[in-house]
Amino acid sequence: MIHIENLSFGYKKDKLLFHNLNLILSRGHIYGLLGKNGAGKSSLLKNMVGLAFPQQGTCLVQGYTSSDRLPSMLENVFFLPEEFHVPSLSTKKYVHYTAPFYPSFDYDAFYSYLKEFEVPSEAVLSDLSFGQQKKMMIAFGLAANTDLLVLDEPTNGLDIPSKVQFRKLIAGALTLERCIVISTHQVRDLDSLIDTVVILHDREVVVNQEMDTIAEKLLFTTVPTSQGVQVLYAEESVRGITAILPNPEGAYSRVDLELLFNGIISGNKEITQILNTSHYAPTI
């Protein structure tokens, strides 16, 4: 679906956000793109959808060079940025004017999503709150039925019930033909939704792994003390020491995305080495 090869990008030639970045994203997955503030998550998404242009390297979406922004590519890509503008139109008029750009748009599904999000279909968009506007745009993106759906910080501005609905609708929208990419700094909003995590750090993608693979290679647990235990990363918590350990025996644990992210950006290269070693195999 998306093939990025040796991509270098920056808003200034002497200050690159990415250098020789490589990334492959496939159909049938919900990817969570994580990174510190300023790491370039939004810029990477804009390169994917052709709103930013690499200084070097290539970004292909379904075989198209994304920066060419050909209609044959754009009709099958929906991008919801973190900040967006809505016109002073009713929802129905907005759909009337905009939906024809997406040949597979499902009108019935759109109004069903609006109902689940409790967004009035007759309201003028500019009169809605930011959270209501965002829910409308998420509903539109899902109903567009594009093979590539890219969402930048989609849960910002949503209340807790709306976040639950968001996760439910996104999970239900995934098909074998669809690729969904979600960028967020609110890690816990994604941990029950995504199946693959992509971590952007120090101008490159340091992790691109399925959650099941991470669970096979690393053990997330609570230990009474770190003494005598090979701890890759640990944090103090009310339950004791929450830690990431090597998992040579393949014991099952639930991936703690926040702990994993903190461990990686702390500079612990052993975690990424374990995750990126293809020949690693747990002993069963």
Rank of each mutant, 00 (worst) to 15 (best):
Gln230Tyr: 08
Ile180His: 00
Thr242Glu: 15
Gln230Ala: 11
Leu219Lys: 15
Gly50His: 04
Met211Cys: 10
Leu45Cys: 02
Leu218Phe: 05
Leu259Met: 07
Ala215Ile: 02
Leu190Pro: 03
Ser253Asp: 03
Val205Trp: 03
Gln62Ala: 11
Ser121Lys: 15
Gly38Asp: 05
Lys41Asp: 14
Gly157Cys: 09
His201Trp: 14
Leu34Glu: 05
Ile170Gln: 05
Gln62Thr: 05
Ala143Pro: 10
Phe79Gly: 03
Asn276Trp: 00
Lys135Cys: 14
Leu34Gly: 00
Leu17Cys: 01
Gly267Pro: 10
Gly267Asp: 11
Thr196Val: 09
Asp212Ile: 12
Tyr102Gln: 10
Leu218Glu: 08
His279Asn: 09
Ile244Phe: 07
Lys93Cys: 00
Ala215Ser: 15
Ser66Lys: 01
Val206Asn: 06
Gly40Glu: 12
Val124Asp: 01
Thr222Phe: 11
Gln209Asn: 11
Gln230Met: 08
Pro120Phe: 01
Gly141Gln: 04
Ala109Thr: 03
Asp212Arg: 12
Thr225Pro: 04
Gly38Leu: 06
Glu204Gly: 06
Asn47Pro: 00
Gly10Asn: 12
Ser67Val: 07
Leu232Phe: 04
Asp212Ser: 14
Gln230Ser: 13
Ser121Asp: 14
Tyr233Ser: 04
Gln273Gly: 08
Phe101Arg: 13
Leu149Met: 15
Phe84His: 12
Leu23Ala: 01
His201Phe: 15
Ser253Ala: 09
Ile241Cys: 07
Gly141Ser: 15
Glu122Ile: 03
Asp212Asn: 08
Ile199His: 00
Lys217Asp: 04
Ser192Arg: 13
Lys269Thr: 14
Phe110Pro: 02
Glu118Arg: 12
Met1Ala: 07
Leu17Asn: 02
Glu83Ala: 10
His29Val: 05
Asp127Ile: 08
Ile241Pro: 01
Tyr233Pro: 05
Asp127Cys: 08
Val124Glu: 02
Glu210Ile: 07
Thr213Phe: 00
Ser104Cys: 13
